[in-house]
Structures are given as C-alpha cells and as structure tokens.
C-alpha cells in the first residue's frame, strides 16, 4: 500500500528529456539523479516532493529514451508511484523490472477528479486508488499475471520462472 500526496501535471507526453535532462545521463549516483528529477518541466519539483508522494500525469508518460535514469530520478526524489492515463512502454518496463516505482494506469474520470495535493492511497491487491482528501475510490485495471509476479518478487532480477 502506498500513501502520499499527489503532484499533478496536466500534460500529455511528459518525456524522459524533461524527467531527467540529457546532460545528467552520465551520472550514476541515484541520489544525485534525484536532485534533478523533472528539472525540464518544473525546477521546484524536488522541493515540493516528500518521500512517498505520487505523480499524476496525462497520456504517454515517460516517452522518449530508454534511460532508466528517469524512474530512478523520480524514485530518489521521493516519488513512489506514477498515475497516468497511459505510459510509454520502456518507461513502464523499467519501473516494473527495476522495481523503482509503480506505474498505474488510471481512467479519464479518475484523472479529472484528482487535484494537485490530494492525499491518495494505492492498493494493488484490491486494484483501487483511494482519494482520502475527496473520499472517493477509483478502480484500476489489475496488472497482467506475469507483471504482478515481478512486482511481488521485487523486480525482474529477483524473479524466478
């Protein structure tokens, strides 16, 4: 179960170049990467985020490059889950296989309902997101079987077939 404050960016196609800009790709220290998370979109991002918080965004979140620096930077900035209308595929894989954070697809209704700074709770066992501020519950699609197993194992490297 994840509980945290929502940081909502009402934008589609938030790409890896804004999540962690190219010049930082040579950095391998995750905490250092975390200091530059979302720098291309919002320079105040890391000051706003507390450990355990949740990012909310539109369609095709994480499009662009295959850099695993993107979910790593978000995680080390404190983000534990991203709720988006849809995800770019490599970003999605990286989140799951690297066990960095939970990528959760939400529908348009939930997306419109969630406001910036709402307190949310994610429950992937019951397949729901609860909005504690607004006292509402949003249903989410269950993860495909293999993906759920990889999440439960704590990432692909811990998963044995």
């Amino acid at each position: 179960m994840q509980r945290g404050i929502a940081h909502k960016y009402e934008k589609d196609n938030i790409d890896t170049d804004v999540i962690i800009p190219g010049p930082y790709l040579k950095i391998m220290d995750p905490n250092e990467l975390g200091k530059h998370a979302m720098e291309g979109l919002d320079v105040n991002f890391i000051r706003k985020v507390k450990d355990g918080d949740i990012l909310v965004a539109g369609n095709n979140f994480g499009c662009g490059s295959s850099r695993e620096h993107a979910p790593i930077a978000l995680k080390h900035a404190g983000i534990r889950a991203v709720l988006a209308l849809s995800f770019a595929r490599i970003f999605y894989r990286n989140c799951i296989d690297g066990a960095h954070l939970l990528p959760i697809e939400i529908d348009r209704e939930a997306y419109n309902d969630i406001s910036d700074k709402d307190e949310l709770e994610i429950d992937i066992e019951k397949n729901e997101v609860r909005n504690l501020t607004k006292k509402r519950v949003y249903k989410i699609k269950p993860f495909p079987e293999l993906i759920k197993k990889i999440i439960d194992a704590g990432g692909l490297l811990n998963y044995t077939q």
Binding site: G64, N94, D97, G98, G155, L157
Partner: peptide, 23 residues
Amino acid sequence: SHTNTTGALGCFATGMGHTDVAY
C-alpha cells in the same frame, strides 16, 4: 530506445533499460 533502427535488417530489434539488459 532507437534500437528499433536495426529492424530494417529484418530482425526483431527493441530498446530496454538497465535492469532488463542486465537480466
């Protein structure tokens, strides 16, 4: 991510992140 390029040779070519490549 632009590993897709090589698919013009008639192969299945796809890009992945660090954890997947390590696997």
